[in-house]
Design a protein around this nucleic acid. Structure first.
Lengths: 363, 363
DNA sequence: AATTATTTGTGCGTATGTATC
DNA sequence: AGATACATACGCACAAATAAT
């Protein structure tokens, strides 16, 4: 300690901090007196006071006049947990998100955690804002649904900062290829496979598909779609596949000439797999206006089993999203990461096919 | 300053703090040098350094060796805002809550705020947990839906602590009678009045009602129910009113003999006002099993215009809840309280009657 | 480019006051 | 009452950074 270039009071601070960290002194134990420290280290009492003063400010020690200097209770200070969990989804109100959030909250609130809520609207810029916001709040963990999971994510630097700070992250629905992390998601490939196999088993040979191109779920469902075709020795006509991205979501399905041309392309198809229920419901309406009867002329399958699927005239056959269950599992996984029980959890949940009117061949 | 009993360094601290507070020095302005202060106050430089050292720790000043001592930028430090807003509702997933939360988030996230989410399940104990939790998180404000708003609330002490810490609160849906605060809610009395008047105008003379007894919304809607009757010189038969509380909500409407007796009591009624859509939908089912035709034998009105109202065979006439709009207004109000633009905001929003099958006399 | 004055940073010694045991 | 330990306060010396000359 003597040959060091650092100031003496800093060296003393380090010594005291080490002494405490090593466990030689516990909370409320009495430290050596200022006089003793001065003698022992051959420095002035003033220098000792300087060191102790800073350690008091940093929360390591406290002093009582006439009694001495004592080790502070570090439990509540340096090691403190915020008991906050960040939850970031793409959207908030529609669809499956309330259920997912409820599932997450159900598990976390039992353990005394509180949810910090954010949503990205599936926009990178908003995702960045949310992440930065949460980084400032000393989270214990983060559950997040990726934004445009297929595209390279420009916010990986922020994710890396979470990792650097030791804040565990659980992705739901998808994950980023350029960032290794835990995830809990439904098995989209299997879902796409089940939906397609269902149609094939009902005798459909020419099946069209509408898939989202910029998230992993879309790609996965398409992959399952392909797999089912292969398994039954059916070829896929590329003209029967429509790809869309988040941006052109709304215009696409309202009155665009684009969709009209697509409808025309799939005249020969008797089945249609839609990326999700929302698309499927929109397609039901479009098919109706085109005089195409569902399921008679064309059977339709959606994904997610959202409330939409059960609302309309024609109840929708759909691949059910685990929703609340997924939320619970994501939360439970995060807790395991926080507690250090596990280091990395990557889990895919098996989807379930729910058959309703839109594929029922009830004649 | 000289005759004071306080230590000199504390007196100097006070002097410097006042000097800054009075605006004589602004952020990054240079303070007098240690030497100058020592001379001016006839104290030693050591004492000056002690004072300045503490002010640095408290975030008032910063020093640069060789340059001087400067006033810190207090904006980000002492006056720092957490940019966190607590949002506590009774429930999370079902019904209108996702929309309300979305509305709140829409307004708040634009201003850079993040939502801390909690829900009470309409239980005092959980409400207390939520509140205590949030109190520890240095909120900038709180939006909360009261739990059992009619009953005296056992958690008023916590609410008082929020008030003491200057954290503004906006209640939604209702407010506690024993706690003066801002609120944004739908006008339940008017809603009850509109629903009842609608039935009366359709010629119904004997109208039954099911109301919740332990929140203000239930009482308000009943009050409007009474008002409409008075205005049309109709008497209310107490036997036609069913009161229930949060506890017996579920069992009540499934298979209880209680509800059977009630149904029997309202055999002579041709109209039924239900506390909310959920109750109304349940009643539709019960009436159906009893062979009572809606709206032919009995017209039914619900409240909230939830998705339930549009789902079933018989679309429900309902008094629309402003949902998202209420969320937006609550958030905007809270921001006004935070910014100090206003001190107290108490606002009731006008409901809207949406007519559908369950009261349509389409013959 | 080097010098100088100013200002903060580190460190020592001493004295006295005050709380605790 | 006295020993001990922290609290306040003064004075001095030199180092290091900065800014102006």
């Amino acid at each position: 300690m003597s040959l060091n270039n650092e100031p003496k009071y800093i060296q003393l601070k380090e010594f005291i901090k080490n002494y405490i960290s090593e466990g030689q002194l516990k909370a409320d134990d009495k430290l050596f007196s200022e006089h003793e420290l001065a003698n022992r280290f051959q420095i002035s009492r003033h220098t000792v006071r300087k060191a102790i003063g800073e350690l008091i400010n940093e929360g390591w020690l406290y002093q009582v006049q006439g009694k001495g200097t004592f080790v502070a209770n570090t439990e509540g200070e340096s090691k403190r947990k915020s008991k906050l969990i960040g939850v970031i989804t793409t959207y908030l109100k529609d669809y499956i998100f309330p259920d997912i959030i409820y599932g997450i909250d159900e598990v976390l609130s039992k353990e005394g955690y509180t949810i910090l809520l954010g949503h990205t609207n599936n926009e990178f810029e908003k995702e960045r804002n949310c992440l930065l916001n949460m980084l400032n709040n000393n989270l214990d963990g983060l559950i997040i649904e990726p934004t445009k999971s297929v595209l390279p994510n420009p916010n990986i630097d922020i994710y890396e900062r979470f990792k650097a700070e030791g804040i565990p992250i659980v992705f739901i629905h998808a994950y980023y290829n350029n960032f290794e992390a835990s995830y809990v998601m439904e098995d989209d490939v299997l879902g796409g496979y089940m939906a397609t196999r269902h149609l094939i088993e009902q005798g459909h040979q020419r099946i069209a598909g509408i898939f989202k191109s910029d998230d992993l779920q879309g790609l996965g469902r398409f992959q399952g779609f392909v797999q089912a075709h292969r398994e039954h020795n059916l070829t896929i006509n590329e003209k029967h596949i429509l790809w869309f991205s988040s941006q052109d979501f709304d215009p696409l399905l309202l009155d665009d000439a684009y969709i009209q041309r697509f409808i025309h392309r799939l005249k020969t198809c008797t089945g249609l797999i839609c990326y999700n229920d929302q698309i499927a419901i929109n397609m039901l309406e479009i098919l109706r206006t085109q005089g195409i009867h569902v399921p008679g002329d064309c059977a339709v399958v959606g994904f997610d089993n959202s409330e939409l699927a059960q609302q309309g005239e024609i109840k929708l056959t759909t691949v059910a999203h685990p929703k609340e269950k997924l939320g619970r599992k994501a939360a439970a996984s995060l807790l395991e990461l926080i507690n250090g029980t596990k280091e990395c959890i990557q889990e895919k949940m098996e989807p379930e096919l729910i058959m309703r009117d839109s594929t029922q061949t009830t004649n």
